[in-house]
Amino acid sequence: MERKNCAERLKELLEYFGIKQNDLSKRTGIPKSAISMYIKGERVPKQNRISDIADAYNINEAWLMGFDVPMKRQISDRDIGNAFANDNLFDIIDNIPALSPHEKSHFTNYLQLLEINRKKADDYVEQLLSIQQMDVELRLNAAHARTDIDIPEGVDTSEDDIMDDENF
């Protein structure tokens, strides 16, 4: 059996997913003009571009390069995010009435990120949540009396008295 070229496989990918070159460009970050040249066979994508396309659609890189292997790769932990990113999810998100347009935009933008950038976004969100939690805990602790020290009876601990005391 003759090995197919990358241009043929890219055409198959577009047909299989029912997408256009513009969709592939948006999803991978590869300029549309480059994708057009790949599909026409005028240029062969470099390895990083093949990886970008493969990651975006959970496609086996070897298949994309024309080898006789299954099109879809096995889902691993690294790929699990992209395995569920397809055009149907965009429609599903768009039809959730409980989400504001801004929230829908966040979800659809996230789905368009490459896996490595999704990890960065996830890490940043975790950091923000951690900072938010610390702020809440600080406010709660500031509103309560101190329990880590013994204050003798009769000592006034109100802020006004402490602020007026010259010894402090």
Rank of each mutant, 00 (worst) to 15 (best):
F67W: 03
L99W: 09
N58I: 09
P97H: 13
Y124Q: 14
F90A: 03
I93S: 03
R78G: 04
A56M: 12
D79V: 11
D123C: 03
R118L: 01
N88V: 03
E115K: 14
N86M: 01
H106G: 04
H102P: 01
I59M: 11
A54R: 03
D94T: 03
P101A: 00
K120N: 12
M65G: 03
A85D: 01
D77V: 00
D77P: 07
M71D: 01
A85V: 00
L111E: 05
H106D: 09
N109I: 01
H106C: 11
N86C: 07
I50C: 06
G66M: 02
I59W: 11
D79Q: 12
H102A: 10
L89M: 06
S51H: 03
H106E: 02
Y110Q: 06
S105K: 13
P70E: 03
E115W: 09
S76I: 00
V125A: 12
I116Y: 13
K119D: 10
E126D: 10
P97D: 14
D68T: 13
I116P: 09
H106R: 11
F67M: 05
P70A: 04
N109M: 09
I80P: 08
A98R: 04
R73M: 02
L113G: 07
R49L: 00
D122F: 04
I80T: 12
E61G: 14
S105W: 10
S105L: 05
F67H: 12
E126Y: 05
M65H: 05
L64F: 07
K119L: 09
K72E: 14
I96F: 10
P70H: 10
R49E: 04
N86Y: 03
I59V: 13
N117H: 15
L113W: 08
P101Q: 00
N86R: 06
A121S: 15
L114P: 12
K104I: 01
K120R: 14
F90M: 08
R49G: 03
D87Q: 15
Q74R: 12
F107G: 10
D77S: 13
S76A: 02
A98L: 04
K120A: 11
D87P: 09
W63D: 08
R49H: 11
Q112C: 08
M65P: 04
A98Y: 05
N109L: 04
E126W: 05
L89T: 01
S76D: 09
I59G: 12
K120T: 05
K72C: 07
F107I: 08
S105D: 15
M65F: 01
N117E: 15
N117Q: 15
K120I: 06
M65T: 04
N109V: 00
V69G: 07
V69N: 12
T108M: 11
S100A: 02
A62P: 01
P70R: 05
V69C: 04
H102I: 01
W63L: 08
M65W: 02
P97M: 06
K72S: 14
I92Q: 02
E61K: 15
S51V: 00
L64C: 06
I50P: 11
I75C: 06
R118W: 06
I116T: 15
D94W: 02
